[in-house]
Amino acid sequence: MTARRGRLAATVAATAALAALVGGCSSTGDSPTPGNSAQTSALTSTPKSSATQPSATAGGESGAATGVTDAQATQLCSDIDEQLQSWRTYTPTIGKGGLNTVVISWATANGIDLLKLAGDRGQIDTITTAQCPQVRDGALYALEIPNLASALIGF
């Protein structure tokens, strides 16, 4: 039980850190120094190696647009499903924090780029719609939200 609380505390800390990171990294388009805008565009335009990302044409993909395997999508669905009862018990506000914890823990465990995920939070809806629509609907109902992306904090 102590190990589980420790993991939960670490996950909450990671959620807060990610929210701060994403909030601090958001840009209004104005660069404080001329070198920053060039550096940012060079970083964002660097193509990812096919060795680190699953191929969109490889078998076992839950969706070419999402770039996750069926096993990863199944794990996300399972992680969300495990939390549904808690989210039904507590207020939607607390449950939304739990959704963030689940998504960040899942992404971290599967080597998914959190910044890329933050830029396209709709991926979570795409994955869950394709892999586990009943679990997704349960989460939407419990959290009282129109889609999962709308509950992701700091994105």
Rank of each mutant, 00 (worst) to 15 (best):
T40V: 09
L76C: 00
S78V: 03
G59W: 09
T40H: 02
W87L: 09
D70T: 07
Y90E: 13
T44Y: 13
E61Y: 06
A17G: 03
S49W: 06
I80D: 01
V22W: 01
G23Y: 01
R7V: 08
Y90H: 10
S41L: 12
G35R: 08
T28D: 12
V22M: 00
E61T: 11
G95L: 03
G60M: 08
T52D: 11
G60R: 02
E61F: 07
A65W: 01
T69I: 07
T74H: 00
T46H: 14
S78C: 06
Q53F: 11
W87Q: 05
G23V: 00
G6C: 08
P34I: 04
A73P: 00
N36E: 15
G6A: 11
A56N: 04
S55F: 06
A16D: 09
D81M: 04
P32F: 03
T33R: 14
S62A: 07
A71Y: 02
S37E: 12
L84V: 10
A58N: 00
G63D: 12
S31E: 09
P47L: 14
R88C: 02
R88T: 11
T33F: 12
C25F: 10
D30W: 14
L8F: 15
V22L: 06
L21P: 01
V22G: 02
G23T: 12
E82N: 15
A65Q: 08
P92N: 01
L21G: 05
S78Q: 14
Q75E: 06
Q85C: 08
G63H: 07
T33D: 12
V22R: 04
P32N: 01
S62Y: 10
S50W: 09
W87H: 13
S86Y: 07
I80F: 05
G24C: 00
G95T: 01
A13W: 06
A51R: 15
A73L: 09
L43K: 06
S31F: 14
A38Y: 13
L76Y: 02
E61D: 10
A64E: 13
